[in-house]
Amino acid sequence: MTTATLPVYTKKDFQTDQEIRWCPGCGDYAILAAVQAVFAELGVPREKFVFISGIGCSSRFPYYMNTFGFHTIHGRAPAIATGVKLIRPDLDVWVATGDGDSLSIGGNHTIHMLRRNVGLKVLMFNNKIYGLTKGQYSPTSEVGKKAKSTPFGSVDRPFSPLSLALGSEATFIARSVDVFQQHLKETLRKAAAHQGSAYIEILQNCNIFNDGAWETITEKEARSEQVVQLEHGKPLIFGKNRDKGIRLVGLDLEVVALGSGTGEKDLLVHDEHNPNPVYAFALSRMDSMPGFPTPIGVLRALQGVPRYEDLIQQQIREVQARKGKGDLAKLLRAGDTWEVKA
């Protein structure tokens, strides 16, 4: 047996010489830094990483990653990445996308990629705005959003991206925040380890067109009151003094104060492997419920669902094992033939 030795990478090995063209102060810088740092640790040869993107600010990402990179067309990254995976399941393929690219123009590809469980890691930068086209509302913008194309406020109801992903049979959904570096890195590591589609909503600040969209979560003082960190096997507790928890009453979630008769044993215990999607669905939209914190971390990680590309390859191998490798001369002569003599 030979042991291939992997080069030891540092974050620097994943940086390119390209001039980064995001606005100063953009949340994308923090995401880039986290991804470069995590890639260095994953133990994957650099040439096996492929970063594929669509269109939008987030989709410039591949140019700044020293891996194979393909900046494609608006919304189509999951479809192009599916083609890559079907030919080379061994490649580690990541998709950089945004709320417009993934949920609006590319919505169809997003849901079908998730349904098939193609082994792609999708980083969906959600800034609730169209940045590159200079400030129109997006499918995640809140009702009433005043933007370039909605001077009197948007009347569109927004998506909950993770509810949509779950409804598309996603096997891995997670949420993190651009400025929560350690949490973001940990979430990326878990996504990298997942077999199948991993859909990560990264709450990202567009400081030019939608500054402060996530302020209630990221603001230092408010942070611990507004965010609940999900940890597998641990109860759902939050608050500066870890004095609040979430419990289930019937089919409804409820925020309860801990103490005076209510303890950890009464709370929901996070189970990311729960095959019943009802729990993860409740978590996926908890952030939009008044008085509830925003859950971050892995909401769901189903194990043991085969990857699409493996099933496709397996079928090819099975047919080849049964019929032998195709013989072109035989194929051309298949069916009824006849001879014309000279």
Partner: peptide, 12 residues
Amino acid sequence: PGTPGLEHRVGG
């Protein structure tokens, strides 16, 4: 992709 040393970016 997968070819060592040829990491590069292309796009539309």
